[in-house]
Write a protein that binds this DNA or RNA. Sequence first.
RNA 1: GGAGAGGUGGCCGAGCGGUUGAUGGCGGUAGUCUUGAAAACUACUUUGCGCGCAAGCGUAACGGGGGUUCGAAUCCCUCCCUCUCCGCCA
Length: 418
Amino acid sequence: MLDPKFIRANPEKVKTALLERSGDAALLDGFLSVDAKWREKTSEYETLKSSQNQVSSEIAKLKRDNKDVSELMSQMKVTAENTRRLSDELKALETELESKALLIPNIPAETTPKGKDESGNKEVRRWGEPGKFGFTPKPHDELGEKLGIFDFKRASKISGGRFVVLKGLGARLEMALINFMLDVHTRKHGYTQVFTPFLVNEGSMTGTGQLPKFREDLYEAGDGLFMIPTAEVPVTNLHRDEVLQAEDLPIKYASYSACFRREAGSYGKDVKGIIRQHQFNKVELVKFCLPERSYEELESLTADAEDILKLLGLPYRVVSLCTGDLSFASAQTYDIEVWFPSEGKYREVSSCSNFEDFQARRMNIKFRKDIKSKPQFVHTLNGSGLAVGRTLAAVMENYQQKDGTFLIPEALSSYVQE
RNA sequence: GGAGAGGUGGCCGAGCGGUUGAUGGCGGUAGUCUUGAAAACUACUUUGCGCGCAAGCGUAACGGGGGUUCGAAUCCCUCCCUCUCCGCCA
């Protein structure tokens, strides 16, 4: 959510930003007109309420002196009627205003490249050289099925499409990657590990921005609960409605979770392999930090995620998403893409974003500089560190041998030893 | 799932429907005293929103929502959450 005061003061700026990220400028006009009505109604209501409060306390005094107040009270019946009516109108406007405000996306950072879609994204850097194979490299799903470590058939029997069963070394490697990533982030990069519920309530989904706009992407579990599409949701919401101490910032969490996505709009995309699943594992990095430091923190968070690929020896590149490709809540995002030899291209394994105070405002997460200063919103960031299934696929493809087996990267060897 | 108890300011904890934004204590901040510290004493110590250049004024908030009333932390309804006991269960 954007700051209403900022929107009022800079309507043109917000409009430009909306158009850049292919948003709807009518959203803004709608917000502003309801906002104007709301402010007018607010002052009308508060004025009336003020006089009502005054008379009420007068009645209290008179009553204590045993004076007759029946006439005053019958007069006040009318006033009470009016304040009730105004308050109802005000509430309706508030609801409308809130629902409009929740649909306005974040404003892209100055440093976010301008562009209308994926083609406007800017490559920032590359690391590693794609390996040379003396044969045609095979896709990971083919390797996995041949080796008996992926079972798509049985997965579709027990669950359906876009699921996989990992077996033997496949299952072992998946867990190994999770533990390896968590170890690196906690021991080397200083994150605190958290393990959270995979089901969250509606308030949490609204806080991080999945709701109200992206309900169709989520699995609803009933009883008001939703299955998380990423650990970002429970972890960022950990500090919802809290005032943090400035000296505790930045707070850095690393969290493993299974992630659940309906992939409603992706029919026909990545139907083979384990690239796009309804359920997948991910280690997520989340930070809460001082506003003036959030862009430095974005750089270091991205570097922390990249470090996993370096340690695994997987070639990758970092791409800065352009305004048109930016996700709803983000001000700036770096995608980390790992090399897939069978496709001859880089594919996303991590998305690292600075949300500035967009999520913090929705979740009411503040900090206090010192005891005397007012609380203000923190900045929140997150990024995958990394998507586990895709990393496993990349390991298999990049380390594959001519005979259809693959080597295990040195960094993982201690994690898969029997 | 059944039975009971409870949700008040950073924390603990009061609160006959009427100067209660809320007694008191702890904590915190500033000051007095002291060579320094402690102790003691004094004062201050919630946040959101609207209006205003500002000082400030107004309004709202005692788990959430609704109701009764001139007036609700206090009464009624409803939902949520926590705890205890029983049942069931990895």
